[in-house]
């Protein structure tokens, strides 16, 4: 489990990027849900934490593909692959991420430090 931030530091409607490898974005929706996905868009090197959060979806800041934060599913091109999702746990007012052990869908040209 990776500590992300105190819950109070991530207001509703906001997102936070954690510098894991690859980086993870944590979102706090307007409805109060917390979700975590890989921060890097599956199309190109853009940070989804910089994107636009609407409901349970984040719109990529570059070419506007939308990812469903619950499933990682993408709605429409240019991105074609889903983004990997991670589990979020809140304990003692702190947000933690449980990183997925599935392989990420990183865009061409972006690699993890270990791979």
């Amino acid at each position: 489990m990776i500590p992300a931030c105190p819950l109070a530091a991530l207001p509703r409607g906001e997102a936070l990027r954690i510098e894991t490898d690859p980086p993870i974005a944590v979102f706090h929706t307007e409805d109060g849900e917390l979700y975590a996905v890989d921060d890097t868009c599956t199309h190109q090197d853009a940070s989804l934490a910089d994107g636009w959060l609407e409901g349970c979806e984040v719109e990529c800041p570059l070419h506007a593909s939308r990812f469903d934060l619950r499933t990682g599913r993408v709605d429409a091109p240019p991105a074609k692959l889903p983004v990997r999702t991670h589990q979020v746990v809140v304990q003692d007012e702190t947000v933690y991420v449980v990183p997925s052990d599935l392989p990420p869908n990183l865009p061409p040209g972006v690699r993890t430090g270990s791979a």
């Binding site: 853009a46 940070s47 910089d50 994107g51 636009w52 719109e59 800041p61 570059l62």
Partner: peptide, 9 residues
């Protein structure tokens, strides 16, 4: 990109 996404709305 971050602020652009917000202003664009």
């Amino acid at each position: 990109p971050r602020s652009f996404t917000r202003w664009r709305r």
